[in-house]
Amino acid sequence: MTQRLALFTQALAVVVAAVAIAIAPGMIEIFTLMQITLFASMAVLSLSLAFIWGFGGILSFGQTAFFGLGGYAYAVAAINFQDSTQAIMLAVIVPALFSAILGYFAFYGRISDVYLGVITLTVTLILFNVINSTSGDEYRIGEAMLGGFNGIPAVPTFNMPFDPESPLSPEQSWWATAGTLLLVYLGLRALLASPFGRVIVAVRENEVRASLLGYDPRVVKLMTFILGGAIAGLAGALYVNWGAFVGPTIFSLSLSAEIIIWITVGGLGTLLGPIIGCILIEYIVAGIGSQQTLNSNLVLGSVLVFFVLLIPKGIVPTIRDIATGLLARIGRGHGDATPATMPQTAGVK
């Protein structure tokens, strides 16, 4: 009964979200629309880490490496092909390949979670330095100049699939970005509900037990990591489409930190939490950018320390726990035979 109710509520929420995405451009100003388009592309990035960290147990401090590679792959391909269709595909394929190589060394070397965090962080810094040093004519891929610190300006934005003549309007861009966010969310939910998704979570819970049951944790983690890299690359393409620009700061340490903060604030082990955390934090960061007194590093650092020390579970799980507790208390108050431990609604993630 509760299960069905939960499923129904969630289906309803998805429909509401889809309708909201569809009618949003008519309801709000173009500036706000652009801003929430940016937030939606960032939210896709947060989903990629929410998936591999929250469900795969892989702590990647360098998800921006894949985000940035996706962005650069998109920019270079879009300039060369003058058509965003292949460019978006490349923006998914290049980071996926890169994460496959990196993941192979990490998971087949059986290095611990902590070392993986360090390695991914280092990769991001190295990529930042490499891209930063690519100014000058000799660093070009086809038509695209990498441009070093200045980045690549005037990147062609999304167009209708296989139709370079008709670029997307800001409204259509919003639909594409927010629609991608919704699809990635639903796709990950479906994956996690599938047998393979359960294996992913099993490996996170206990690697030894999962391998005794016949699953190879290395393969499972590698698959999870590659999927995370692909999603981050897609987010990179969406991000570049938003600004028509990509520069080395896409690999910056502060963005890597922001992703971690989104998830810590929103709630590790959920998919909805990181989206909420992302939008909340990016909204605050945008607010800080428009004034001079407070430094954004100061605020972000305080938020992260505060949450790790005092609300380590994050917003969404904390609210869920409180709500479950209240429900249980109400149930007992009415003298129902509800067991003290509420059946975990598997859906609320």
Binding site: L298, G301, L304, P312
Partner: peptide
């Protein structure tokens, strides 16, 4: 372990912010 990494990362941002 993981929480200590997150907290010290927050700390690093905080110190950068204060010094800036």
């Amino acid at each position: 372990l993981v929480d200590s990494m997150l907290a010290t990362w927050g700390l690093s941002l905080l110190i950068i912010g204060i010094v800036t």
